[in-house]
Structures are given as structure tokens and as C-alpha cells.
Amino acid sequence: MADELLADIELKRLKASEIVLKASRVARLVGHAELTEFFGLERNGYPADESARIWIGRAGRWADKEKKAFYTTSIAKVEAHAESAQQAIEALRGGGNYSGDMLIPASRDHDSRIIQASSNFDTWSGICGQVVATVYDMISEIYHELLFSELQASLFAETQENIDGSLAAASGSALEKIERVSDRLRDGDPESVSQALTTCRRLIDSCADYVFPAREEPYTIGDGVTLKVGPQQVLNRLQAHTHACGASKSRRDRMRRTLSDLYDRCSAGTHAEVSLGEARFLFLQTYISLGEILTLSAPQAGKD
């Protein structure tokens, strides 16, 4: 609806009052309190006490800001005034048949009425234009927020599907571990948080066992650098896996630092108090990091 409204404004398919009505529905659907207030003022008129000062300015309704004079009438009546002024201009455009002694004063009166009608038209149409411009800016912002939210939700859903599939392949109990972590973090008590972090650490262990089982001989990652990859070297084995999958050095280093910090913090969380908020972020970071490592093996496996 926001996208359609923007097109209506750009193509001048609706009058200002119709745009306000349609925008009011968008504001109501997204629960935007400020916009709902603004559109309510435009539909029903402004109070004379200046309580809506910010919207008076944005709608171009000041007649004399220093004297605190402004136009309070609704956008529908503003539109009607603009149309009336336009009709007056059209009626006066043809001039009049004046002669004799009345020629000069009648001509002056005619010109004065045209000037007044033009001034009125400029005032009322200016308010309409300013209101429409304000609506456009606000609805455009809402549209892009909604578009980003939709893209974000789609991206997260796709990522979750890939990660869950990889975790299921890595360990039949991996997803059950994640469900237990979620349940414990929902409980929120210190003991549940500690158990959740222990489960996170064990999840890292199980993934390392899956992607790079322990072995006695060290693993060489280049430039003469070797890593011990025994049962206790969980992080080394994960690093060896990222190297074997062909990940760039900068990416391997980033994943190594992230997992090292997560592993240390999850281990510390079993002995020291970790807040519920931190524990939730640690769990999410663990989930994403393991997902990235596990999905690295997909292209490599396809080549075998």
C-alpha cells in the first residue's frame, strides 16, 4: 500500500485530501503514532492553541509565524478553497466591458480581484503541495523500512534453513541441543543460563568432531605453520577445517577469533555469572558462527 501511495503521488493520481486518507490507513496498519496524529489534524483541522506547532510548520500552514497566525482548516476545505480561487481566476480572466467614467475604476477593481484570487490560490494550493510533500517523505521512509524488514526476514529465514540443515547433518542431537538452550534461556535463572552456555560449548565440540575428527598427526596450514589437531584441540580442528575448505586467510582469522572468544566466554559462563542478555547473544553468535563453518564444507563436498 505504501508503494502504491508513492506512485499515486508521483503520478498525481489523487488529490491531497485523498492522499491523506490513504496515508492514514498506512499509518494505522504500521502503528505509527506520530503520523496518525498528523493525518488526524489534516482530516479534522488544527486546534487554535498552537499545540500542533511542529505539524503546522511541516504542512506549510503558517500565515504569519511571528504573530502566531496559521491556517487551521482541514485539508479537504483547503482543497475546496484552492478550487474556488481557481474558478474565480478563470471567471475573471476574460475581463469586463467597461466604458465611460467607470472604465478606470472598474478596470482597477477587476485587476485587484484577479490579484486577490491568485493570492488565495497560491496560499491554498501551496498548503496542499506542502502536505503532499510531507506525506511523500514520511511514507517513503515507512516503505523503505518495510522493504528492509521483509528482506531481512527473508535473509534470516534462508540462513536459518541452511544452518539447521548443516547442524542436523553434523550431529543428530545438535538441533535438540539448540532447543534445550532456548528453553533454558527462556527460564532466565542463573543455573539455566550456566547450563545453556555449557550446551553451547558442547555444540562447538560436536561440530568440530564432525567436520574435522581428531588425529595424531599435526595439520599444516602453510608457511610451515602446523596445528595440533588432537581430541582436546577443538578450535585448532575448526581452523584446520576452514583451511581445508579453501577459505581465505582473512576469513579464517575472523572465524578463529570469533570462535575463540565464544568458547572462552561459554566456558567462563559455567563458573562466573553471565547475564541473561549476554547469554542470549552468545548463543546467537555461536549458532551463526557454527553455521558459517558448517556451510563451508558444502562446495568442497560437491567437488569430491
Rank of each mutant, 00 (worst) to 15 (best):
A153M: 14
A153C: 08
L155P: 04
F156K: 15
F156N: 14
A157R: 13
A157C: 11
A157P: 09
T159I: 09
Q160N: 15
E161Y: 10
N162H: 14
N162E: 13
S166R: 08
S166N: 07
L167C: 09
A168F: 12
S171V: 09
G172Y: 07
S173F: 00
A174P: 01
L175V: 00
I178F: 07
I178K: 01
E179F: 02
E179T: 07
E179K: 06
S182N: 13
S182H: 10
D183F: 11
D183T: 13
D183C: 05
D183E: 15
L185S: 05
R186G: 05
P190T: 08
P190C: 07
P190H: 05
S192P: 08
V193M: 06
S194H: 10
T198Q: 12
T199S: 10
S206T: 09
C207F: 00
A208W: 00
A208R: 00
D209H: 01
Y210K: 06
Y210W: 13
Y210C: 08
V211A: 03
V211C: 04
V211W: 00
A214P: 07
R215F: 03
R215W: 02
E217L: 08
P218S: 06
P218V: 05
Y219G: 07
Y219T: 09
T220R: 10
I221K: 08
I221L: 13
D223G: 08
T226W: 15
P231E: 10
Q232W: 04
Q233D: 15
Q233V: 04
Q233N: 15
Q233K: 13
V234H: 01
V234P: 02
V234S: 01
V234C: 04
L235R: 08
N236S: 15
N236V: 06
L238C: 07
H241V: 05
T242S: 13
T242W: 05
T242K: 04
H243L: 08
H243A: 13
C245L: 08
G246V: 06
S248Q: 11
K249Q: 11
K249I: 09
R251G: 02
R252Q: 12
R252T: 03
R254G: 01
M255H: 07
R256Y: 12
R257V: 08
T258D: 11
L259G: 00
S260R: 14
Y263R: 14
R265H: 11
C266S: 10
A268S: 14
A268R: 13
A268W: 06
G269P: 05
T270F: 10
A272D: 14
E273V: 12
V274G: 07
V274H: 06
S275C: 10
F281K: 14
F283A: 09
F283C: 06
F283K: 09
F283Q: 08
Q285A: 11
Q285Y: 04
T286E: 03
I288K: 06
S289D: 01
S289L: 05
S289M: 04
S289K: 00
I293W: 02
L294N: 04
L296T: 03
